[in-house]
Amino acid sequence: MKYGLYPGCSLNGTGIEYGLSTKAVAQKLGIDFVEIPDWNCCGASSAHNRDHLLSVALPARNLALAEQHGLDQIAVPCAACYQRMKAAEVALRDEPTRREVGEVIEMKVEGKSRTRALVEVFTNDLDAEFLSSVVVRPLSGLKVASYYGCLLVKPAQVAIDSPENPMIMDKLMAALGATPVEWSYKTECCGGSLAITRPEASLGMTANVLKYAKLAGADCIVTPCPLCTSNLDMRQKAAEGLLGMELGLPIYYFTELMGVALGLEMSQLGLTKHFVEATSLLKNTPAAQ
């Protein structure tokens, strides 16, 4: 299977573990990811607040590049990138918009390439039987809270699953042998976009996500979003202070847990780069012992 890959800025920076684990897992599964040459910023978090045309044109250029290189499907790991790219894809279905954007980016764009969230590619495109056959270290006994955040499930035109109770990552976790917990904060906002401007408001929201995962009995949280991850991971100590309770919840990218289940080395997956210590929980799973 061949896909275009749009890594975005975080996969080499704040979300380096996401980048490392994505590549390692893809290689292990025999999925061919071709990085879109000369890609640019998707515009997330700022462009659509400034200018609508800019917010479509930025990702549209990446879509145009993908088209030029014959990449019909683009896998996008970052949830924010996915949402901007998919929103552009939807906007480009309108012929006048397509023409206008084409003039702005000075490229021909037909809107042929399909934007896919990485979590979709790793679940819907993989045969369930195949996936269970390659799991060598099932995550038995690991209680996981799947946290989707807001960007993959809203608004309806770009959503990959139900906005209230998505299940796609829960099913993936179950396929890896882990136990997904029932909880109610799957798609609540983590406060990511207020993290810089109003940190006290943001922290309250982050803390609630962590609290309810803990109350649901989870050992850890799994996410498909670098922004959520950095909030939940980096600010967990501050959240503990705010809540007055101990959390100790490692925050994993779903690709990291896939990698572990597939038998890859933890350091190769970036698991040593977390704020909340992330390796011992996995070493302690019954399967590892």
């Binding site: 029932e182 909880w183 109610s184 904060y185 309810y212 109350l215």
Partner: peptide, 11 residues
Amino acid sequence: SKIFQVGDKLI
């Protein structure tokens, strides 16, 4: 806006 379960309570 939201109803969810914590322990045996419904929030």
